[in-house]
Design a protein around this nucleic acid. Structure first.
Lengths: 258, 258
DNA sequence: CGCCGACTTGACACCAATCAAGATAAGTGG
DNA sequence: CCACTTATCTTGATTGGTGTCAAGTCGGCG
């Protein structure tokens, strides 16, 4: 069975072709998503029964928005998405970028509190939340798996709190770059080239700085010989150790001086 | 059965008497901790079987430190604790203050990644992690309860990311004050007096600012007529609405201007 | 009474947000 | 293929905010 989903046209979209395709979950990929790794064959089969595959053809598409009723949770099979939230004054903060294997969309009081949008073309697995809850009550191992994932997200969030609470602009940028260096999807270790899948807007909103400040931070690291800009979305990393060292410096003294 | 635990003497401690007492979990409080609310009587009984009550007599005591092996999780029955983490350069960031009903100490790879310390006198329930896991595998409802709690912590962490990424010093302070206003334990709505259970060190390390900056922010809110300092740990709130309004202003324009 | 830690205030330099303007690149329509 | 539009990226100038160093005050405790 094949289903075509429609989404409200994005402001920057000029296409009219369907951006998303959905179909039932069977043999769509040879790389199993991480959620399957810890589960028995039987459990995987049951998950497949309730899952739908969604395909988003490009970046900038909304998967769900904060405030909407939440009926599904999602797992990424391919591509990058961003999780963001808007303050009451309208400012956007990007809470996380998520990559294949990550899970997102857990409801909070039946609603989505965050917004999820594609950064690149994306393939997702979509699970009906109610059915998933029923399954989890019967399969404790499945529930434990979900618990581990949420706990991981919590650790990641705390990590970002550390960055935003303590690091200078340059350090924040180094932190983001080092994170992306771990993904061979974006970083070619041989020639040292990193293709940043995110634009300066997203980068700034993630690091909690202004867009111009982000650009200047990149320019500074370039002056310092740590990297070289190829084009706006590609940079060549010249000194990984230097980036790491930069994170160790201190922006401000700790309030609690021992 | 009564057990006496010992902890390494704290630097500011001059006492020699035992700071912590532990005893088995039975009828120690007439106010049930929140973890019990959603559980059946049978499940509560089972929880009691594996729980121990710990009492810390004062603030500044370490419950566990980052890097230690994690064998227990904890629930707060009474008092306030702080969860912190130290960056590689030694800077401390306070990730959260936790109050009665909150749960903390979930292991990550068998270890504690954060440090937990008492802010005031505290009574805790301590649960052996392994036994709790076994119970959860048999009682899905218990596990779901834990999942809900971790998800809640994640939302709180994301909330702090919003604050640290977007808000000015004054706004951050207003945010913290408004949070404490919700707890009748600290805020007397009649005379408007707020007893801050945390010192300026903790306050600054929580908000990601320098200690002096925190003091100056308080002074500024006082000049603006929003509050009045009684003594270093007590302030009188004069304009709650003004504090709320302060949070809505924007420190900087969003990077993603629509 | 004197010490000590926590709190507070002042001075100053520097970093980053903001406003402004230009550069680059990709798309669009002629 | 070229002019035009638009979005994104980049750089400059300016100002306010915040970290840091320094000094002083306050309160508790021995």
């Amino acid at each position: 069975m094949s289903v075509i989903l429609t989404t409200p046209a994005k402001k920057r979209s000029t296409r009219t072709a369907p951006e998303i395709r959905a179909r039932s979950f069977d043999r769509v990929t040879d790389r199993p998503s991480q959620i399957e790794n810890l589960l028995s064959q039987k459990e995987q089969d049951r998950l497949r029964e309730i899952a739908t595959v969604l395909e988003y053809r490009r970046g900038g598409l909304t998967i769900f928005s904060e405030g909407e009723d939440a009926h599904f949770v999602y797992a990424i099979d391919e591509g990058v998405i961003r999780i963001s939230r808007h303050a009451e004054n309208g400012q956007r903060q990007i809470l996380a970028f998520m990559v294949p294997g990550d899970l997102f969309g857990l409801p909070d009081g039946g609603m989505h509190v965050n917004t999820a949008e594609t950064v690149s073309a994306v393939r997702l697995y979509r699970f009906p939340w109610q059915q998933l809850v029923r399954m989890m009550m019967e399969e404790p191992q499945l529930q434990l798996n979900l618990l581990v994932r949420v706990a991981y997200d919590l650790r990641q969030a705390q990590r970002q709190i550390m960055i935003l609470g303590q690091q200078s602009t340059d350090q924040r940028l180094a932190f983001l770059l080092l994170d992306f260096l771990r993904h061979p999807e974006f970083y070619d270790e041989r020639d040292g080239r990193l293709r940043l899948p995110i634009n300066r807007f997203d980068l700034a909103d993630y690091l909690g700085i202004a867009r111009e400040t982000a650009v200047r931070a990149i320019a500074k690291l370039e002056r310092d010989g740590l990297l070289r800009r190829i084009d706006s979305e590609t940079i060549q990393i010249l000194d990984v150790a230097g980036l790491r060292a930069m994170q160790l410096g201190r922006r401000r003294r700790s309030a609690s001086t021992d």
